[in-house]
């Protein structure tokens, strides 16, 4: 490693692995955003807030269940469901009334929710940060080339592909997935054959938000759960979706990989401004392909 003399190859690999496991979470959250974007044509800005709520909910559920292994698994199941429930209420209560209106109004509505959710979290959980433990079976670390690699990160690396496959199955093999795809292309047509488009949109929206909640629950044991998590993640997922291409699940995966790796390398080279590196990657991609790497599959 001539370029970076003070970084050993092992440290580099370790950083890469950590970056990859972080990619998993980014992918899960971004694929949810991408799903909603593909079908509803809305970049749901409140997606980041739902991720944050997912993390806080996971904390609360895990502590209520005693904080042990059981608490963690319970939180992992219940927190995303809770987020999905919230989003269902929002969608059916308010959001669905705007489908006939100007597109910008829908977009602004998600802005409004970002603002409301941000403060609601502060009201419910206070301004302190929280932290949550991984279950004992996933604590500790392996040795990778002489460096410790946390078991929990390995767990994340396994979860990622499972979610990707599940999504692929959902969008390509199930009826709802096929209908959603058709509705994204031509909603009048789908309505004309007697399908309730509004409910199709609702399902897609809720599934997308569920993924945000899942991402939040998964990230909870790895970092402090704080206010402001929403802003960070929404910017990251925006970048990922932009690189990957609108509404394309594999694009989200590719985008998350590019983002996670450039970010990890950035942290090694120039920690203070590591954030610049993913941007450079995104701008390069956009210069070459203004519509993102992969085509919109919807």
């Amino acid at each position: 490693m001539d370029l970076l003399p003070n970084i050993s190859l092992a440290a580099f690999c370790q950083q890469l692995l950590v970056g990859l496991s972080r990619t998993t979470i980014l992918f899960i959250v971004a694929s949810g955003l991408s799903l909603v974007l593909g079908v509803l044509r809305i970049p749901n800005v409140a997606h980041g807030s739902l991720y944050m709520i997912g993390a806080f909910l996971a904390y609360t559920i895990a502590s209520a269940a005693g904080g042990g292994t059981f608490g963690f698994w319970l939180a992992l199941v219940l927190a995303p469901l809770g987020v999905a429930l919230i989003s269902l209420a929002v969608e059916r209560g308010l959001f669905c009334r705007l489908y006939e209106r100007e597109h910008l109004m829908l977009l602004l509505f998600t802005f409004a929710f970002t603002l409301v959710f941000g403060d609601l979290v502060k009201l419910v959980w206070g301004s302190d940060f929280r932290s949550m433990n991984a279950p004992t079976s996933l604590q500790g670390s392996f040795d990778v080339l002489g460096f410790p690699f946390p078991k929990y990160n390995l767990f994340l690396l396994i979860i990622g592909p499972i979610v990707a496959l599940g999504l692929w199955w959902l969008t390509n093999k199930t009826k709802i997935g096929k209908i959603a795809k058709a509705a994204a292309v031509d909603r009048e047509m789908v309505a004309a054959v007697g399908i309730n488009v509004s409910w199709v949109f609702a399902s897609v929206f809720v599934i997308g938000c569920f993924l945000a909640g899942l991402g939040g629950a998964l990230v909870a044991p790895t970092q402090n759960i704080t206010q402001g998590m929403d802003h960070g993640i929404i910017i990251e997922t925006f970048l990922i979706v932009i690189i990957g291409g609108l509404g394309n699940i594999w694009g989200a995966l590719l985008g998350a990989l590019i983002f996670g790796l450039t970010d990890a390398i950035g942290i090694l080279i120039f920690p203070q401004f590591a954030i610049v590196f993913p941007y450079v990657a995104v701008i390069t991609v956009l210069m070459l392909r203004p519509k993102g790497l992969l085509k919109s599959v919807w």
Binding site: R41, P43, F238, V241, P290
Partner: peptide, 13 residues
């Protein structure tokens, strides 16, 4: 150079 939605999203970023 980007589409309308991308414009908004990338500007935020």
């Amino acid at each position: 150079r980007l589409s309308k939605l991308y414009f908004g999203m990338f500007q935020i970023s």
